[in-house]
Design a protein around this nucleic acid. Sequence first.
DNA 1: TTGTATGCGTTATCAT
DNA 2: ATGATAACGCATACAA
Lengths: 333, 333
Amino acid sequence: MGKELSVKDIAEMAGVSIATVSRVINQNGRFSKETEERVKKIIEEYDFHPNQLARGLRVSTVRVIGILVPDITNEFFAMIILELQKILMTYGYLTLICNNNEDERIENEQMDMLLGQKVSGIIYVGGRGIAKIRKGLPFVCIDRRPVSAGAESEVPYCLIESDNVKGGRLAAEELYGRQCRNVCVVSYNQEISAYKDRVEGFMQAMRSHGIEPMLCIAEYMNHYNEGENMMDELLEENPGLDGVFFTTDYLALGGLRSLARRKIPVPGKVKVIGYDDISLCENVFPALTTIRQNVKQMAEQAADLLISLVNHETVSRDAISKIDVELISRETT
Amino acid sequence: MGKELSVKDIAEMAGVSIATVSRVINQNGRFSKETEERVKKIIEEYDFHPNQLARGLRVSTVRVIGILVPDITNEFFAMIILELQKILMTYGYLTLICNNNEDERIENEQMDMLLGQKVSGIIYVGGRGIAKIRKGLPFVCIDRRPVSAGAESEVPYCLIESDNVKGGRLAAEELYGRQCRNVCVVSYNQEISAYKDRVEGFMQAMRSHGIEPMLCIAEYMNHYNEGENMMDELLEENPGLDGVFFTTDYLALGGLRSLARRKIPVPGKVKVIGYDDISLCENVFPALTTIRQNVKQMAEQAADLLISLVNHETVSRDAISKIDVELISRETT
DNA sequence: TTGTATGCGTTATCAT
DNA sequence: ATGATAACGCATACAA
């Protein structure tokens, strides 16, 4: 391995001081065009990469963003992370991705490690409770409104989320428009803001048409056989059922399996709508109608916001809007 | 935010020197039970976390493992990463996950950033070519045999992979055993070792039964509509087709959609087998028969191996075995 | 425009 | 068993 190169070595080879090298690397301070060229050439030639730890120690933060997420295996979260990483990379930041299966103990542990690494900021994707967020550390949430452990106002954070109420409404209108009159919502834990909002929007819209949907709550996220089981129960209890809105694609896919197994025509007899628009949706038969969340836009806003925070720019709350959603009409309605 | 705590502060409060604090934190050197207790208590009380950057600067590496992966959105890779992270976490390591869509430029860039961060080691999941691996940096590959840019022998690496030849063979035997005689394999880029091996195993086994399968190559990974398109073509060119082996579940799921759309009975008329056993498999109808890769074991071996490398333990090549695979028989065969 | 010198928070060596 | 101190590689205030 030999000795690793340092700015000192570069400085020597370029015949300048380390200060100058540092200046051209960070493009601040002043230096002549010629010295810049010379230094840059040497850096290039020797494939030198400044030690980020030393830099971080000096400036007390490092160009790394921590990302907390409940389940990377969930395609919706994976898509968000993918986009986040792309964008942050263009800003010159690496991402430290941490999984925690909604396990608060693990989450705290990861948060500690992140703090130990002196990350520049943290993005909290789909998180439920903010364990301990350090004041002053740039922090933005995506997808869910966390419930702070202490007093509500003590934990300020920025939130990027979809317009879930609208999503629910869109689903309701689609179902109603396609003549469904005996409908049901199946969702997850209603303490999670995203799901609560979707259900709320759906309920509101249906009620405005004089329909009172049934509400079923699944227990675990991402166990789509839950969708299948719920659908089974629903079908047996309510033979007249003609439409169901699942607040997650995974759930809906499970429901579809139940329907297919029973050879119940979709959308002929019952129509179904999912939420998220993961890649599976258009690759099952029949292809799943769903509410698409604008993942790209969510990630973009979150990343930009975080970087602004990192750079101590004042961020106007107006810049933070609810991201629009759209209905993707496919074969199940 | 105030001033961040440092060992110095802890030392003062505990009435000892910083050296002692460092010693109890790292549990090396000698110190009395009493001072240990006292220091630990203060650390606990003030929720102190040593600055990992300073530590990293000093010991010239940091407790972070870099993970390179082509597509985090692919559930198979996501599962591996999830497991890796779990295990590495128990060793006290964080993971720096980097996506690169098989884009060598991005990959190099990420590698540079990783090196700048002085990560302890790198795990390369599903990588194709090793751009520039530093000699001496612990490095292990999962899933695919990378093709080194330079001379083969110059780039030594450890590889953890499934027994893909066996997987292909299992698929062939299942199909043959269920009376398929007119079969086809659809795979991806045959320059990727994992896919090549699967096809090879399948071909061998089929040929041993006197059958010569057709081979179709899809262009992009994870675009499952490719599976659908291929299946469409296949069905039109070869009406007698009675079995197909897709070297990836995503592909197979697409194929299933084509079959369902055409109302061709599965497994009645044609049988299909996938590869990986992602969670979708048992949640579509009919549920997909597939070859399950032992993700947990792969991740475990890779992580253990890497940590051994990091700790400069001599690792016996015997410990590195091909991970066994198994056929999960469901409803498509 | 460029160089010198200090300090960031830690670990490790050498004393005591 | 414990303490003082140098060094890690960089950014920056200050000097030139």
